[in-house]
Write a protein that binds this DNA or RNA. Sequence first.
DNA 1: CACAGTATTTCTGTATGCACAATCCTCCGA
DNA 2: TCGGAGGATTGTGCATACAGAAATACTGTG
Lengths: 235, 235
Amino acid sequence: MPRNQPLMAPAPGSSAPAATTTATTLAEAIRIALAEDIIAGRLPPGSEIEEHQAAERFGASRTPVREALRELAAAGLVEIEPRRGVRVARLTLERLGEMFEVMAETEAMCARLATHRMSAPERFALQSVHERSAAAVADGDVPAYDALNREFHSALYRCTHNGFLAEHVQALRLRLAPFRRAQFHHADRLRDSFAEHAALLRAVLRGDGEAAAREMRAHMLAAGSSLASTLRPAG
Amino acid sequence: MPRNQPLMAPAPGSSAPAATTTATTLAEAIRIALAEDIIAGRLPPGSEIEEHQAAERFGASRTPVREALRELAAAGLVEIEPRRGVRVARLTLERLGEMFEVMAETEAMCARLATHRMSAPERFALQSVHERSAAAVADGDVPAYDALNREFHSALYRCTHNGFLAEHVQALRLRLAPFRRAQFHHADRLRDSFAEHAALLRAVLRGDGEAAAREMRAHMLAAGSSLASTLRPAG
DNA sequence: CACAGTATTTCTGTATGCACAATCCTCCGA
DNA sequence: TCGGAGGATTGTGCATACAGAAATACTGTG
C-alpha cells in the first residue's frame, strides 16, 4: 500500500537501530532531520533557514533541501514567503490558542471513539502504560514521563480503530510540538497530568465515552494553559 | 502575516476575475491547476502523473512540477512512491470510511462550537444561505445547491471563530473532494440534505450545541453512506 | 547628518543535464 | 509453453547553471 509517508521518523526516541532507519531518498532524510531540529528546538520558531547553507550542512545540493522545505511547509512546521525565504513557523498567541483548542477537541474525539471501540487487550495495555508512568512521576523523571505520556495518547489513538484519525491527530501533535517543549517543567504539572490521565482512564474503563471526552478536553486545556503561563509573548 | 498559503485558489467557482488571481510562483500555479484537475475528476484517482509530461503541458520544466507534486502529496491528494512515480490518491473503501468519520466528527465539532459562539449577524447570514438553497432544491438545480451547500458549511466553520479550525476542516474537505463528486446525483439526496440542514439550523438557532453536533454528524454520515452506495469498489 | 537613488550582492525560482533505479523487452534454455 | 537472465528504455532523484527579485551597501545631494 503506497500510503503517505509520515513526516518524521517513526519515534523520536525509538529503539530502532539508530539512523538509516528510513531514508529511501535524500530529500526525505533532510526532511526528517530538519523536522527533528525544529521539534527539538535547535531551530527555534522564527529562525531563518537558508537553502544553500542547509544544503551544505547535509552535503547535498539545494534541490532536495527545497523539496524537504516544501513538505515541512505543507505540514505547518515552516513558513515560506515566495522569493523571501523560509523560516520556522512562528505563531501568534491567538493562533496557538486556536491550535490547542482543535487539538483538545480532536483528542477528546479520540477518547470518546476509543472508549466505545477498544478491545480488552487494548484496555489492559493502556492501563499498563498508565501504571508505568506512575513510577516516572514518583521519580520526577521528566523525560520518562514525557515518553510515557506520548505513548498513552498514541495508544488511545490506535484504540479508535481509525487509522486515518490516528495519523491525523498525530500530525496535529507534531505541528504543535515545537511549542510544547516546556511542557513538564514544573513538577506540579507532572503530577496534575498524571491525575488527569487517571481520571480519563477511569472514564474509559467504565465505558463512559462522553466523560472520557470531557476528561481529555480538560486534560489538554490544562496542558495548554500551563504552557501559556510559561511562554513569552510570541514563541 | 506570512501564513501558509491555501492549497487551492480561493474558491472553485468564485466571482474573482478568473485566472491570474493568485500566482506568485510557477510552482504554485501548477499546484493549483493540478489540484483543480484532481478535484474536478479530470485526473481520476489512480491515474499516474508523469513529471515530464506535466511539465510539457504547463510549458515549464520538471522542477516546479516536482515541487507542486510534493505539496499535493503532503495534502494527501496524490501519492508518491519513491523512484516509482506519482499517482492521484486512490483510497481503499475502508480508508474512505475512516476519512468520512473524521470529517463527520470534525464538522460536528464545528457545529457545536459555532452554536455557542456565533454572533447575531452570523446567525442571520447562515439562515439566509439556507433559505437560498431552498430555491435550488425546488428547481433541482444541482450545481447551485452544491455551491450553497459548500457556503453553508463554510459559514459554519467561520462561526467557530477559530481560524485554524476553519482552515483545518477545509483542508479535510479538499482532501475528500475527489471522492465526493457524485454527491447529489439523486434528487432524493438533494432533498434529504436540505432537510438535514434545516434540522441542524434549528438546533443552532435554539442554541443547543450538542444537538447541532448530533445533527451535523448524522448529516455527514448520511452523505457518506449515500456516496458509498453509488461508488464502485475502489474509487 | 538624513535621505533618495543607484549599484552590488545575495538568495530564490527555474531550467537543464547526468546517473541510477525500476520496468520492459528480448532471447535463450528447460 | 514457461521461466529467467540480460540488456535497452523510461523516468525519477540529484546536481549544477542561470536569471531575476529582494535585500544590502554605497554614493551623492539636500
